[in-house]
Computed example of a mutant assay.
Amino acid sequence: MAIPHRAPEDTRLMNLEEFKKLLKKFDANKDNKISKEELQELLRSHGKHFSGWKSKRALGHADANGDGYIDENEMINLVEFAKKQLGVTVVAK
């Protein structure tokens, strides 16, 4: 059985600042960092299955300093994740 994926025409385009704003909408405690749980909520809101597993993998990939959070400087590391999991393509301004 093939797993369906989003076609390119379903992809939303946004610049990096818009992408950061999207992430910050899920910053529940307003600490300017995204936790695994906050990332998981973002995935759930987009109807994604296995949100706990996917958020853990994304955090492991994006969290360059290993503190367990994605801060402002690390958000760029989520661009490929957003393309695959959220149907969002981040483009240059």
Rank of each mutant, 00 (worst) to 15 (best):
P4E: 10
I3G: 12
F50H: 08
K33M: 13
I34P: 07
H49Y: 02
I34T: 09
K25C: 08
P4W: 00
M1W: 01
K20E: 12
V90A: 06
W53L: 13
N15S: 09
G52N: 09
A92N: 07
R57V: 13
L16S: 04
G47L: 02
F19W: 09
L43K: 06
E41M: 07
K56P: 03
M1L: 10
K83L: 10
H49W: 02
A58D: 07
M14S: 12
M1Y: 05
K84C: 06
T89W: 05
G60S: 08
L59F: 05
K56L: 03
E9P: 13
D71Y: 03
D27H: 01
R44L: 13
H5W: 00
R44K: 14
K84N: 11
N65Q: 09
K33I: 10
K24E: 06
G68W: 04
K36P: 00
K30S: 14
L78G: 07
F19S: 01
K30P: 10
N15I: 14
A64V: 11
E74V: 13
K93G: 08
Y69A: 03
D27A: 05
H5I: 12
E17W: 09
L39A: 00
V90Q: 07
D31G: 07
F50Y: 02
D63S: 08
K54F: 02
N65K: 07
F26M: 07
P8F: 04
P4D: 08
P8L: 10
K56T: 10
L43E: 03
E41D: 11
L39R: 02
G47V: 05
L13P: 15
K25M: 13
E80K: 09
G47H: 03
N73P: 06
N15D: 15
E37G: 06
V88M: 07
K84P: 03
